[in-house]
Design a binder for these strands. Structure first.
Lengths: 171, 171
DNA sequence: CGCGAAAACTTAACATGTTAATCATCCGCC
DNA sequence: GGCGGATGATTAACATGTTAAGTTTTCGCG
């Protein structure tokens, strides 16, 4: 069996593994990724049915909650990096869902606001979205869900100080 | 002030919002995303220093834990979609970090295994990765971290049944 | 004033996520 | 033994993540 030989060669390389590594299933990033994907799988069809991606929806929601907002501040609130935001804003503006002006006092700053058309779209999407959220809370347990959110926020908080090497000396 | 007019127009559109929407900060997908990003921000520099992306690292780790594995099974274990995996495998193979054969009994199936070079790379990256993980556990609390992982797994489990419309009739 | 550094975006370039379409192979079945 | 559906994997096309570089405008300051 030529196949047994190949297997032997592979195993030889594998036997050099003296590096202990946690099992994959215990990886925290993996657990967070899987949980988030399980949640998003519930929401995506509804968004998609209205021609929206998850990120576009985040932006519209953020804009709907304020009168107007600057690009950088929106990036912070919607948790998007500048380049992604720039592209998405270009598209949303072309679709007439948002409007943009230039700050008269500082022409570097762009000021964004949602349009009436954008508000109308939100009104169409929100009910389904709320229903899905209620369903998740119901299946998982509202109390438990609140506890989970609290723990997630604490995790984020406990890691916030350490900017991972580069800005380690910010404090 | 012509600006006051624009503001008035924006507010008019906003006043049509009879759609109650949870505040952004209470969004579960957002909380998961933020937590995951906070965690990954710790790991990314170390991976990047060795020329690896997060996904490439997931693949190498998964391959290191087995003798060999098929592409579809690897996608499931590393939690990657087929197309992403295909591209990454092409690159990893070109870099000599993995090897691929074709299943003799079913020529549709590709069989993957890590190379000696790949194992060596893992040995270089793993210590730093483990140290970072220990640091996170230390700052957040090992007990709490375990509890969080359990809750995440339960969330995933409680949403697993509902395949979001399409495959709702699988059971 | 005017020069240089910093700030706010934007563009560029490459990697991945996501869905649909395509390709090759296998398998059941007539 | 060959046709048709199912399966494994890749490719295509578009959107976003991620880092670096470029552009425009401000601002400090001599």
């Amino acid at each position: 069996m030529s196949e047994t030989k190949a297997k032997g060669a592979r195993q030889a390389a594998k036997d050099a593994r003296k590096v202990p590594m946690r099992d994959f299933s215990q990886s925290l990033p993996m657990a967070l990724l899987r949980a988030r994907e399980a949640v998003m799988r519930q929401f995506r069809p509804n968004l998609r049915a209205h021609g929206l991606t998850e990120q576009q929806w985040r932006i519209l929601r953020a804009l709907a909650a304020v009168d107007s907002i600057e690009v950088t501040e929106l990036a912070r609130v919607a948790f998007l990096l500048g380049p992604s935001l720039s592209r998405i804003l270009r598209d949303l503006e072309a679709r007439g869902l948002i409007q943009r002006e230039v700050d008269a006092r500082d022409m570097r700053r762009g000021v964004l606001s949602i349009s009436a058309k954008g508000m109308k779209l939100i009104a169409q999407v929100a009910p389904g979205s709320e229903a899905i959220y209620a369903s998740i809370a119901s299946h998982y347990g509202a109390r438990k869900l609140a506890a989970l959110q609290k723990m997630l926020a604490e995790l984020e908080g406990s890691l916030a100080q350490f900017g991972a090497s580069d800005e380690a000396d910010d404090a």
